[in-house]
Structures are given as C-alpha cells and as structure tokens.
Design a protein around this nucleic acid. Structure first.
Lengths: 337, 337
DNA sequence: CCCGCCAATGTTAACGTCACCATTACGGTT
DNA sequence: AACCGTAATGGTGACGTTAACATTGGCGGG
C-alpha cells in the first residue's frame, strides 16, 4: 500500500502565522478572546496551507466526535435508502454527521461494522436491522452508547423507531374487505426479514378477525422479478392480492395481466411502501405509504435526546396511510365458484 | 451534549492479560513472534473487556486508514445508489472501508464534505459529481491524495470512471431509426446534471448524423412525476420518445396512454438506466442498461492502483447495451402528416 | 562456563489535537 | 510607585495507538 503523505498540522499553521498552535486551535474553535488581527493572520495561514483539522487527533483528545454511526443493510431497497437519506438530512441539521457502514445477517459482519464505527468513536448508533440475527450482535454495546433501532418493523420499546406495520396491514385488509373481497392472497417478503414476518403475521391476524380464509402464502425476495414469479402462482380463486412491497406488486401485476387476468377487473392488487413509480403504473397501484422521512427525523431527534441525557421513554410508532389508486376495485360479480 | 464514556484501551487489556500494551498491539496486528499462551491470554482479556481498537489513535499513529472517502449526491436515485452499493462491495473485498458523505452543488457543501473526509484521513477519494459545480471544489485536494470521479457522465481523462453515454444514446437512436422512426422527441434530465447535458448533446449529434430533425426538448427532474408531466407535452407529430432515464420514461408512458396514444402502437418509448421495474412495466420498457456494478468495481480497482503507486493511465469507458422490450416498435403506418 | 544470538516481550517517543494552567503586557487603583 | 486584574497568548501533558529500539531469558557452541 502506498504511503500517504500527511497534510499540514496546526504547528505548521502556527509557524506561518507566527503564533502558537494553541492560538490556532482557539481560532478554529471560535474562542472569543483573540485579537482580530491575530485571528486574521491565522485564517490567512490556514488558507495558504490548505490546512484541514485532523479529526482523528481531535477525537483522540476530546473523546467525542459529533458523529452518529449508521448500520445499513446491504441492499438498495427503497425503504432503507429513503430512511438513510432522511437520517442524513436530519442529522446534518442537528449538527451531527452520519458515518455509514453496511452489514448483513451473516456471522461476523455486524461485529465488523460495530468495530468500524465504535473504533471511530461515534457518539451514538442507528441500526437498521431488518433481520433478527443483526439485533443480537448489537446487544454488547447497548450500555456503551445510545443505540436506536430503525426499520425493525416493530416497536422494540424505547429503543426503536418504526412504522406501525400492523396498522398498515389492517388498512389494506379493511380496504379490500370494504370492496367485497373475501379471498385475499399474500405475496410475502423473505422469511428472514422482520418486516416480512410482521406483515405476514399481522395479515393472518386481521384475516382471522374478519373470519376470512387464509390462502397459501406466496413469497418473494422483495424484487419485482420475484413478484412476477409469485404472480404466476396466484390462486385462481383469489380476488385480491396483497404484496408485501411495491416492486413485488408491480411484478405480480405484470404476471397477472400476462396470464389474462385484468387488474382490478379480475383481481385487485395492493402493495406496500408507495414507491414513486407506483403512481404511474397502469393501473395505478393501491399501496400503503410509509413515511420514511418521519422515521429518519424521529430517529435523530430521539438520539439527540439520549445524548443530552433525556431519559428513555416510549416512542410512538409512526402511522402509515393507505393510498387508494386504480389497482384495487370491487370484487368481480361473476366470481365465487 | 452528553459526555460519552470511553471504552477500555490497550492498557486496560494489557493489565488484565498481564502483558505490556505493545504485546496487545502485536496480537491485534497479527505478529508472528508471540507465544501461543500469551496470545491466548490477550485474546481472552480482549473478549472479557469487550475491547475495540480505537481507530482515531491508530490513524494518528500510522497516518493511514485504509478508508476511502465517497462523496455522494444527496439523492436516492437508482444510478448513484447502485454505484455506491457496488463500490462498497468492491472496497470491502479489497480490504478498504468506504466512508460516505453527501454533498450538493450548493456553495460550501462540497467543502464541508471534504473537511469531513480528509479530517478523517481517508487514503483516497471517490467523488460522484453529477453537477459541474461539485467538480471545482474538489480541485484543491487533487494533489494531496488519489481522487477518482464517477458518474460524471463523461470520461475525464485518467481520473474518471464512466459509462459511455454517447454510445448509449447512439444505441437508442439507431434502434429507433432501424424501426423507421424519424421524429424522435427527447425528455431530458435537469440541465445542471452533467449526465443530462451529455445525453442531450449526444442525441443532438447523432440525430444530425442521421439527418433527422430535432424536436423541441422537454425536460424533467429525473422523477416519474416529472416524466408524466413532460409526457403530456409530447409533440403530436413525434413517433418516438427518448427519456433520459427510466422513471421519467415510465411517467411519460402513463401520460401518453392516458392521452389516448398507445405505446408502442402510436408512439415508441425508450428509457435509460434499466431499473428493475422497467422489465415489468406494460409494455416492457426498452432501455439502455448501464452496468453500475462494473463502474464500482473499476473505480475501486483504479484507486487501489493509485494507492500502490501505479502511474495514472487512460481508463476505458464502460460500454452500455440496449435492452429492447415492447415499448418500442415500428413506426405507425398511418402517420407522417 | 561464558559468550552471543534469537525469540519473546517491554519501554519510550512520536502522531495532532484539546484542556488546563502559566505567562506576559498593559491599564487602572490605591 | 507598587499592586492587581484582565485580556491575549504560550507551554505542557494527556488521549490510544504504532514504530523503533531496548531488554530479558534461554540455549547451543566453542
């Protein structure tokens, strides 16, 4: 590996400005008691040398960094990405910098991610853990710094910011039931995802509440392709399909229409997530909107509270809402064999 | 802000294991000349204390970090996200860790991003600069560490990894021309994006080559919504529309069909990017596939070369390819008013 | 039996910053 | 004139790690 030359240090700046390094430090940290002329000399020297403060040294000296670590899943799905984006924006406004790294449920990768982040003295942690294995590995640092779970699909007491999945599923079922549907089939996400499990379990519950039969559960891997494949298997007696996310729903829509079943004429279709393209599918996809921006905002806010010593308290789940478009309609008159 | 307690240090581990801190360091860095028994004691002590190496101190001492800084645009579009994902994966395999931060073309944000990254002693930099303003701000560090531009849309000599945009546009036009189209309208991306400009300019060129008339250029902001709006304005005489990315194409498809023009019966439609959903649109969207994985891979590889002192050399642009689906077809027989 | 050498470990001094305390210089009090 | 206070700046040690050199303790050869 090539050796990388170091940039100029405070001492270099101090030498050029003809002051002590400490004065440079004071200028950088916005101390008040500095003669304007001295400050100007220092600023000029900084400019001249292209000096940038060495954060490693600063962290070493102060023990804190104003950086929050973010553990992301190794995907580029809409949900995690939108949340990341929201966290980044909210953190920036709060004067914090996110330090992002990825991990998978595979043995060891979460540990690596934590090594990376804690080794860089992050002040707090946001963990997007969509798989339960990832939660376990984080336990060891819970008492070392504030940790917040996000997108686990479920509220985990005072440590988790989440959209109310149960509520979202209920909205879907009630919407479909109000349209007369009684045979609703589910295209679930991968079984190792907490969110997928949760939506699946919630669906089961709500169907039972309404006294509806459960059809065999199809499943995919969140991708449109997998939704397409699942869509080919949709039960002939099903009058509605609920896919666990929008891309799978769009894939299923493709498969259904290709198979000669019109949406929503023969089968109603509902997704989950409200990706921007869903509004422009034909027919427009009925779906559940999850406010990821709010998730990110809330997460940063809670973390700031923790950092400021506000005691842990209950975190309200975030309410999703239904967006009814054209892909869901009344149950076909002919049906019910 | 709450004070964050420090974790255990090498000295603590050394005390527990009954050795010197240096021996702990040697164990951590995989030195060979350590008695197995001693090593075991150290490992046990590390385990017991939950010790994690302080990277700030390590960086301070070594001057290097095996971290590459990544400057991302503040968006979650498919292209940048896919590339980021690919870079992350490739870097991990190469033993490097990406340190990601975002910037916008706004005054100062690129500087902030560089402060953040350089302050953490990154060994190299990947800049996803989609807007020219972002390029300028980076110039000041070009001689301090290896810098690689990505997604600038164009090859910038030995410092840029990019998909050959000109080639992609040519593929689209030749595809359409071979189907008999002569009136091709463009839905461009935002004018401040290099990629948008480049595709637009390339289109102009290739149209001229074929002696084709230029229709008024519509434009959007990359989003499906903006594509929809642009789609409402498509020239009645146009027999083909080329959108600068897939989401805009999908939006336009919506608008066209809503306006009673069938795709591809009345108007052919071609996108750019090949997002996964495009395969499942109805009709399936003809588009240009950009291999972002290859971009990420190549980027990391070039950076490794630079770090190892391999001299700068020409970087081949990456070849895109056309994916012909159902949204493009022969020019309608009736037409040509 | 002593010397030297190697293998295994310990000691000390950086790295660049901030926190803390010390030192000036200067004007105003007594 | 001696004193004090304050505003501005300087000097010294952490912080936790690595690098370079120093120190042990055995063991084999002359």
């Amino acid at each position: 590996m090539g050796k990388v030359g170091r940039g100029p240090s405070m001492h270099d700046v101090a030498a050029v400005a003809g002051v002590s390094h400490q004065t440079v430090s004071r200028v950088l940290n916005g101390y008040v008691g500095i003669r304007p002329e001295t400050r100007a000399r220092v600023v000029a020297a900084i400019e001249e040398l292209g000096y940038r403060r060495n954060m490693a040294a600063r962290q070493l000296a102060t023990g804190r960094s104003d950086v929050i670590g973010v553990v992301m899943p190794e995907t580029h799905h809409f949900g995690p990405m939108s949340t990341l984006y929201a966290i980044e924006a909210a953190a920036k406004r709060a004067g914090l910098k996110p330090l992002i790294t990825t991990a998978t449920p595979e043995e060891g990768t979460v540990g690596d991610a934590l090594d990376f982040l804690l080794g860089r003295s992050v002040d707090a942690l946001v963990v997007m853990a969509q798989q339960p294995e990832m939660l376990d590995a984080v336990k060891s640092v819970l008492d070392r710094l504030p940790v917040l779970f996000v997108l686990t699909g479920d509220a985990h007491g005072p440590r988790s910011v989440a959209v109310d999945q149960r509520r979202g599923v209920r909205l879907v079922v009630e919407h479909l039931v109000s349209l007369g549907h009684r045979r609703i089939q589910h295209i679930a996400g991968p079984g190792d995802y907490l969110e997928a499990r949760l939506r699946r379990a919630a669906l089961r519950e709500v169907l039972a509440e309404h006294g509806l039969e459960e059809l065999p559960i199809l499943s995919g891997d969140w991708s449109a392709d997998s939704g397409y494949r699942a869509g080919l298997e949709v039960d002939p007696s099903a009058t509605a399909v609920f896919a666990a996310n929008d891309p799978m729903a769009l894939g299923a829509m493709h498969a259904l229409e290709e198979g000669g079943r019109s949406v929503p004429g023969d089968v109603s279709l509902v997704g989950f997530d409200d990706v921007p393209e869903s509004a422009h599918a034909r027919p427009g996809l009925t779906t559940v909107h999850q406010d990821f921006t709010e998730v990110g905002l809330r997460a940063v806010q809670v973390l700031m509270d923790r950092l400021n010593g506000v005691p842990e308290s209950h975190i309200e789940p975030i309410e999703p809402w239904l967006i009814a478009r054209e892909s869901s309609g009344p149950v076909p008159l002919v049906a019910d064999a």
